[in-house]
Design a protein around this nucleic acid. Structure first.
Lengths: 161, 161
DNA sequence: TATTGTTATACTCTATAACTATA
DNA sequence: TATAGTTATAGAGTATAACAATA
């Protein structure tokens, strides 16, 4: 579901943020899927291209769990866009090396991502556009910087086998 | 994960919307959990209180699947906040009737939701606050009104048993 | 025949735990 | 001992299908 799961009696920030982020995410996913990428694959590809980075570092940048990163790198390798290389400095770590094809795809995916963002922002008058980005940046760096503690109980330990 | 799973090379609307909506959602969930509600329970409770509504109608308002609504109404009934009543007009349908206790809780949960929103918006200067709401409303009603088609293949049919 | 709500269950996503290999 | 990455799998969330009651 789209998750507007809060009321709408007045200026409902929850609804607005949930809805716009959800729709933008579907647009991004649809656009990237045309070249066979997920948003996560795009994210890892671009940041692996910028610098020699390990899976752990890339997971940190993209705010993914390391196990999610395994799946993402598997997909990139399978598509021939990146390769795991044992780090010379720390033989436990894997550097994600982007292939030539991967670099080409990364350029395409970055262009796609930029286009999707420009189309959304372009739908706003110049003044609102800047104000939106300024306000969201303020929130993201301030009051909405870090997630609240989850009210849900921690997951139970695995059953004895 | 927090899902900033797109790059951050420039003004990254995806990251900003995903991040702020995620954090606000955790704040809302944490705040509502103090009175034993989820965001969905709050949403259903408030809209059931406004008018005589069936599960199907409430599901539509909250953008939930009807099977998700079953679970949500089960929780509300179990907590003594609402009851299912067979509609007199259409005996297939169930009107969600809010109990007295449910009405009290709805007032509390609405106050909590308002507070969470006010705290976030209050962290912004007056001018940015209005601009943010204006810009988000424009997007939500315009370019980011409806989700793009899912690029994922439809779910396979259930296996023969 | 179509629709409301229910049950059962399948699929996706994400995270925890345990493991291997290094450090 | 601790960390990088892997595997297996648990749990949450959600959606599909089939069904009963009613329209």
């Amino acid at each position: 579901m789209t998750s507007s799961a809060t009321t709408r009696t007045e200026p409902d920030l929850s609804f607005l943020l949930d809805h716009t982020s959800h729709v933008l995410r579907t647009q991004m996913a649809a656009a990237l899927s045309e070249i066979g990428l997920t948003a996560r694959m795009h994210c890892v590809l671009v940041h692996a291209l910028e610098d020699e980075r390990t899976q752990a570092r890339l997971a940190e940048i993209g705010d993914m769990d390391k196990t999610t990163m395994v799946v993402t790198v598997d997909a990139l390798e399978k598509a021939g866009l990146a390769e795991r290389r044992t780090s010379a400095r720390d033989r436990r770590a894997r550097i994600i090396a982007v292939t030539e094809k991967g670099a080409q795809v990364a350029a395409q995916s970055q262009a796609i991502a930029d286009r999707v963002h420009e189309e959304a922002l372009g739908a706003l008058p110049e003044a609102e556009r800047e104000a939106l980005l300024r306000a969201l940046n303020l929130l993201a760096e301030g009051h909405l910087a870090t997630p609240a503690e989850s009210p849900r109980p921690a997951r139970r330990a695995r059953r004895e086998s």
